[in-house]
């Protein structure tokens, strides 16, 4: 053990990089087709993430907030919190499973009670800022010289008009309380549909960056971090290209068969 510890400390980085590479390539194997290697790493991922979550719930929440007060400080009533939590597990016993609903109901109720604050803090500040000024004007100051309203240029006023029109149109699209027979409402809802397509385009474009950034991170790891351990970026890049070529070749051969 005494020899293992310094050895592990010395080789930790290299071992992490090799393990990481196997895991990355193992999961990338799904790009070829469904296979056993991918399933293996998928289960490894599931196990590791579950173990990590359980461990951290204990070390960061249950230990400091429940175990230490109960065991070290003698706060015996913390046992009640455990019992309340254990009521959830009655769900696994058919005869008394309904009692678990009392715990679940209590937490559901608490979440519902909190929803009012969430709604007010989240949406109320957005309501007044949805009513934007539409008439261009100079900056307005009060008698003491304090700025009351910022200057509004003509382009800004047009932008505000566009904003408010889109807001109303999209809201009218979701107006299901009455049948949309009215011509104005119908047209407005139709325009709202177009505006949502516009928005979905913007969201799609943004999403692309998020996903690409992740892949860059992984390929950076393979080519730069792992590459430096096997003779340089060029070697890993060539190896990657070889793997891609092999996958394409295998895929075409199986397609022909």
């Amino acid at each position: 053990m005494t020899e293992f510890s310094p050895w592990l400390a010395e080789h930790l980085k290299v071992m992490s990089i090799w393990l990481g590479t196997f895991c990355t390539l193992g999961l990338f194997s799904i790009l070829y087709r469904e296979n056993k290697l991918y399933r293996f790493f998928e289960h490894l991922f599931l196990g590791i993430s579950m173990g990590y979550l359980m461990g951290n719930v204990w070390t960061d929440t249950l230990r400091p907030k429940w175990w230490i007060p109960l065991w070290d400080k003698g706060e015996w009533w913390q046992a009640g919190v455990l019992i309340f939590g254990l009521f959830y597990y009655l769900i696994f016993f058919k005869k008394v499973s309904w009692i678990a609903r009392l715990s679940i109901g209590f937490i559901l109720g608490a979440s519902s009670g909190l929803a009012f604050q969430g709604f007010v803090n989240d949406y109320w500040p957005q309501i007044p800022t949805s009513f934007k000024p539409l008439w261009p004007h100079q900056a307005i100051y009060d008698k003491t010289g304090l700025l009351v309203s910022k200057a509004l240029s003509v382009p800004d006023a047009i932008n505000n008009l566009i904003f408010m029109t889109i807001l109303v149109c999209v809201m009218s699209y979701f107006f299901f309380s009455i049948e949309q027979n009215n011509r104005v409402l119908k047209r407005s809802a139709q325009a709202g549909r177009w505006m949502m397509m516009f928005t979905f385009g913007a969201i799609f474009g943004s999403t692309m960056m998020a996903r690409i950034a992740l892949l860059i991170d992984r390929l950076d790891f393979l080519v730069n971090d792992f590459g430096s351990h096997i003779g340089g970026q060029g070697v890993m890049f060539t190896l990657l290209l070889f793997l891609c070529g092999a996958v394409i070749f295998l895929a075409q051969r199986t397609d022909k068969e």
Binding site: G20, T21, C23, T24, F45, I48, L214
Partner: peptide, 9 residues
């Protein structure tokens, strides 16, 4: 070695 690589991949 495992968790970070698996999760991000």
């Amino acid at each position: 070695g495992l968790y970070q690589a698996l999760d991000s991949t």
